[in-house]
């Protein structure tokens, strides 16, 4: 097998920065623990065309997507908000709509950290949807991700309990740190996937 099955692929749309990194890694670990392959904007290489085209190509190859809209407030000297996450959520919603009767459907799940109903103000068109919630902690993101994943059509037991994933998480992070040091400070997406895929054998 050289490429992941469509129904086992999940696109992750979240901030790619140092602050969010622990949460991103927890999502990747949850996906692997349930037998899913994680994809994201970092999956493809920069030489493969315009960034948005690469994102669309990766997203449309995934049965599911998970979106974290937690970064909705202004940041930095210009007090600017990041629009990449809502943009990619919009792409996923369009994909889901377009493929609703297709043999290759797409389902998305969005979540927010912090204030529960803030999204009804900053992205009020989603007011009728049940967005997931977390407390911006690793454990809460693991609980939210596992809860969503297990309810999807393609998650099949047996799988480890969230507490077991959380218990293994520090070891996973230590492994990533080791690999990052070995690669002179740069951790490729494929390296994270490899660490997760080999690490889940230790979760039970």
């Amino acid at each position: 097998m050289s490429s992941p099955a469509y129904e086992k692929s999940v696109f992750i749309n979240c901030p790619f920065d140092e602050d969010y990194e622990p949460l991103l890694h927890s999502i990747v670990l949850c996906l692997a623990a349930h037998g899913f392959h994680a994809c994201c904007a970092l999956s493809s290489l920069p030489g493969d065309g315009a960034r948005i085209d690469r994102i669309w190509a990766t997203l449309s190859g995934c049965r599911y997507s998970i979106h974290d809209l937690s970064r909705y407030t202004g940041e930095g000297p210009g007090n600017l908000s990041r629009f990449n996450m809502p943009l990619e959520l919009g792409l996923a919603m369009a994909l889901s709509f377009e493929r609703r009767s297709s043999p290759k459907p797409h389902d998305w799940h969005a979540m927010v950290g912090g204030e529960a109903y803030a999204y009804q103000r900053f992205i009020s068109d989603l007011a009728g949807f049940d967005l997931g919630r977390h407390a911006s902690s690793v454990d809460s993101v693991i609980a939210e991700t596992c809860g969503w994943l297990r309810e999807t059509q393609d998650a099949q037991p047996p799988y480890p309990v969230p507490a077991a994933i959380a218990a293994y998480y520090p070891e996973f992070r230590a492994e990533l740190k080791k690999r990052k040091q070995f690669r002179l400070g740069r951790l490729a997406w494929a390296e994270i996937l490899d660490a997760a895929a080999t690490g889940i054998r230790h979760i039970e």
Partner: peptide, 29 residues
Amino acid sequence: PPTSEQLAARETRLRDLEQIAAALRAESL
């Protein structure tokens, strides 16, 4: 309790993940 078929399916899923990740890692390197 999981059946032997479910356990075998899980093993296949984990092996697939390992193989794909290893291939992507080799490609990335």
